[in-house]
Amino acid sequence: MLRSLALVAACVAAIAAHGQQRPIATDALRSGLAYVGADVRAMQADDLANPGFLWVQRGEALFTENCASCHRDAASMRGVAARYPAYDASSSSVLDIEARIDQCRTQRQRKPAFGRESDDLLALATFVTHQSRGMPINVSIDGPARESFARGEAFYRQRHGQMNLACTNCHDQNYGKRLYTETMSQGHGSAFPAYRLEWQALGSLQRRLRACLFGVRAEMPRPGAPELTDVELYLAWRANGLPVESPGVRR
């Protein structure tokens, strides 16, 4: 009795310290890389073989052309993507890195938006995210971001679609186990934007989320829908501490 009381006290202390209890403890966090085959790991490990770098290269050219007059060089972008999605006061909403880039483009540069899943936006987002490679994800859910976070968490725990599955059913309760030929991952977005062999292209985390919803035969929110950004924020917080890998390679 005393021991269980002590345990409860310890849990309460942990919740108080973090504001929110993590579904997967920091030392148990595993990148999706831990659940793919050796061939995919080798492809990601070799920057010259990783096709995601085609987008990094293009993103660098776009950055120099469109962004460098304010943001100077790529080094100024180091660590930025590790803090996204983040609350943006000017639009009173949480923005992911893609939305942030397009916002800068439409509001500051007065140019037409690249648009979600466009090759140019993917390339820029990958280039910017790549500058934070190896740095731990460190998003904030304090203050005004809290509402979006709570919606994201609710979406994550809500069952969806004809399969009646919630994200948590696979990615918290059954990671490491097989689903036919796939090993289920912990569902972190740390590799994104990532090159997926199934897509034969590089895609955003939102595209991955939509693919997962398609897989459970649920209605897919449109690209850029606020509920997807909410889930992105929840996932990033859940992966806080994992290193950024972009451009990752996944099946």
């Binding site: 010259l48 073989a49 096709p51 770098f53 085609l54 293009r58 034969q200 292209a201």
Partner: peptide, 9 residues
């Protein structure tokens, strides 16, 4: 020599 071509094929 390594060559990677960006192409949808």
């Amino acid at each position: 020599v390594r060559l990677q071509i960006r192409h949808a094929m």
